[in-house]
């Protein structure tokens, strides 16, 4: 554990927290918050649509955890970027180009196998991410990560149980789970891109270099996929890019339209 922290968080010791008006660092944190926020929004769509009522509740819990992670970060980001914005300013009032989430989380809800494939990758990524961030030199980030870590371990467990059952279930479920793993793959690499903001966040001892998480995340996913009698497709095809700099895919605009339209129809209102 300690060697990993040293690898991913150089300079953690001399970090002194965030200075107001620090836009690049705020941008890094916004990436973390927006991933959680947008995925919570997508998971919320499952309520009343899951394969079994028990699963409605499970996905609801995961959505609530992710929503909580985003809400833990937004006000802090508002203090760092100097804008003083609150959680709803970030969630409800930003245009598409200002969102910094990866494409993976904004993709439309597919079938249950698609969701479990996405949840497997995303929660494996979040487990590694938050494990590293508990050692962040930024106490607020370390705190959020510590709480999130307990949650995302459960999410990973949930996804793993399902991927194994679908992969090693019936012929149809095997086929559908494999297809879902194939479909999600082009959106995975983006999680591990080292954009400028993450490099700066690492320099200040507060962030973690995304690329440094890749092997461990892939190792976790590969183990589950093997147990599920499935194969991890190789990633030689087109892959998504640009989420961290506000370049999004088609579903994002619709997601925001739905999420924001009431708040934006009533400027200045409280709810």
């Amino acid at each position: 554990m300690s060697t990993m922290r040293n690898e991913s968080l150089p300079g953690a010791a001399e970090n002194t927290g965030a200075a107001p008006g620090d836009k690049p660092y705020a941008g890094y944190l916004l990436g973390l918050a927006d991933d959680a926020m947008v995925y919570a929004q997508r998971l919320g769509e499952w309520m009343t649509n899951a394969p079994q009522i028990e699963e409605d509740m499970a996905l609801g819990n995961i959505a609530l955890d992710l929503l909580g992670q985003a809400r833990g970060l937004y006000p802090y980001i508002g203090s760092i970027d100097g804008s003083g914005r609150g959680e709803d300013d970030y969630a409800m009032q930003r245009d598409e180009r200002d969102w910094r989430n990866v494409h993976l989380v904004e993709q439309e809800r597919g079938d249950f196998a698609d969701e479990m494939a996405r949840l497997l990758w995303f929660s494996a990524y979040q487990v590694e991410l938050h494990t590293a961030l508990t050692g962040s030199g930024d106490d607020v980030v370390a705190g959020v990560a510590g709480k999130a870590l307990k949650e995302v371990r459960y999410h990973l467990d949930h996804a793993s149980l399902w991927v194994v059952r679908l992969g090693d279930g019936t012929e149809e479920s095997h086929r559908r789970m494999q297809a879902a793993l194939d479909r999600v793959l082009p959106y995975v690499a983006e999680l591990f891109d080292d954009d400028e903001a993450s490099v700066l966040a690492v320099d200040r001892g507060a962030g973690v270099l995304p690329s440094s998480l890749h092997d461990r995340v892939e190792g976790r996913v590969a183990a589950v996929v093997a147990q599920a009698t499935l194969t991890l497709p190789d990633g030689s095809r087109w892959r998504s890019r640009g989420g961290r700099s506000g370049i999004h895919s088609r579903p994002m605009g619709y997601l925001l339209a739905e999420m924001q339209h009431i708040a934006r129809s009533h400027p200045g209102a409280t709810w």
Partner: peptide
């Protein structure tokens, strides 16, 4: 749920 006008309301509704 997807349209709740604030994050607090969204969490409560879920």
């Amino acid at each position: 749920i997807t349209r709740a006008p604030s994050l607090r309301r969204k969490a409560i509704l879920i």
